[in-house]
């Protein structure tokens, strides 16, 4: 088996995550799907790191994790704020526009 298969798997996970972002309304689930996409990207980085035989990919994945952690903190805070003001965690409820 070639390590490229990991990349295929990552592409699959990334796509699933992206579709999830698009079709889920619960902001928390949307956020989880974003995390899934980030993880898929990380898997790609790690796989390529192995394929190319250097550690730059892993370093990058490490940074992605840190940034993702920061993003989760802020994002969840935003969701909490959203929930406080709208009493709902649905991303659709954030729209104030007339249809």
């Amino acid at each position: 088996m070639s390590p490229v298969n990991y990349v295929y798997l990552a592409a699959l996970l990334f796509t699933i995550g992206a579709v999830g972002v698009l079709i889920r309304r619960n902001a928390i689930v949307v956020f989880m799907c974003v995390e899934l996409m980030l993880n898929a990207a990380n898997l790609t980085l790690v796989a390529f790191s192995r394929i190319h035989g250097n550690l730059d990919g892993q370093i990058m994945a490490f940074f992605v994790m840190v940034v993702a952690a920061a993003e989760v903190v802020v994002g969840l805070a935003i969701i909490v704020m959203l929930y406080r003001s709208r009493h709902s965690a649905s991303v659709d409820d954030a729209s104030l526009m007339k249809l």
């Binding site: 995550g17 999830g20 689930v29 899934l36």
Partner: peptide, 9 residues
Amino acid sequence: AVIGALGTV
């Protein structure tokens, strides 16, 4: 992993 991802969604 794929099943888990699908479950998430």
